[in-house]
Design a protein around this nucleic acid. Structure first.
Ligand SMILES: [Mn+2]
Ligand SMILES: [Mn+2]
Ligand SMILES: [Mn+2]
Ligand SMILES: [Mn+2]
Lengths: 149, 149
DNA sequence: GTGATTTGTTAGCTTCGACTAACTTTATGC
DNA sequence: GCATAAAGTTAGTCGAAGCTAACAAATCAC
């Protein structure tokens, strides 16, 4: 009869499966990871060096200069940084807020791993990846554990 | 100029910066994340349903069927799965080994988060992302903590 | 001030991971 | 057995993130 009446199994963008929701959440986090690492690093460079130059960003990130340039353009498009040709990079208010939030998370995760007994180098490496995948709830527990230990 | 620069030159493909190494490690982990989630899920489907069908993979992953098809082709190219047109998917020995390893990590991270006091839903969601960024050393500490608590 | 070095940009290439649209094959219902 | 529904595939698009090569601008050394 009518092949279009019952709306069978995929009601629009509903996953309907808790697992699918988890994976979608992870994919969403993955999309913001790079922006987060960039603004965090830019804030740090501005703080320690006085300015954030693309060449330093490239060195710290371990990528080439053109990669940095393209990414910075994207961040500018997204309103996180401002830049002028051949000049160093600045954070917008939004970028600065994000950087601060990221730094906080990074710190919490790092201190937590260290308080668990992990060596500094591994802790830094793990934290750099984990920080983008911890919920606010988990951060609360991490903080509590680190303080109490 | 800044005389505080510790690494004045970048001779080969050497990062020379510990931070850059961390970021490169994270990027490497990112590249295997999807393959890991797929083989883990495929193993689970084979175990619980008897077979791993693309339609079920798509539902659990929360993506569309063509996305699954393309990813499965890539996994086949990489020697992790085998497939025949219109048939369900099988793991190679290598794929099965990877799946087992991933399941182990996933379990450790999940149990750790739960033992910290996190609710089940958030724990599952966080574990799905974190699992790809924990070193073996960290896993040891996670296991020890979960057992001890 | 000029030449060399460093830094930054642009163009173009590649792979990945997502999507939609359109099609084919397989399975189901009756 | 056949029509229809479900599952799977193919083709094509898009943006992100990496790279190299080549060039332009800025800065340094002197
Ligand atoms: Mn990070
Ligand atoms: Mn960080
Ligand atoms: Mn995962
Ligand atoms: Mn997993």
């Amino acid at each position: 009869m009518k092949p279009s009446d019952p709306a069978p199994q995929t009601p629009d963008d509903r996953p309907a499966d808790p697992r699918a929701e988890a994976f979608q959440g992870v994919r969403a986090a993955r999309r913001s990871e790079l922006a987060e690492d960039y603004v965090e690093l830019i804030a740090e460079l501005i703080h320690t060096q006085g300015e954030a130059r693309p060449v330093d960003i490239a060195a710290k990130m371990g990528v080439t200069a053109p990669t940095v340039a393209k990414t910075l353009d994207r961040l500018a498009r997204e309103g996180l940084v401002t830049r002028a040709r051949y000049r160093s990079v600045f954070l917008t208010d939004e970028g600065r807020a994000l950087a601060q939030e990221c730094r906080r998370r990074h710190e919490i995760v790092l201190r937590f791993l260290l308080s668990l007994g992990l060596d500094a180098e591994t802790a830094e490496r793990d934290a750099e990846g984990i920080e983008h995948h911890v919920s606010e709830r988990t951060l609360v527990l991490f903080s509590a554990f680190a303080i109490r230990s």
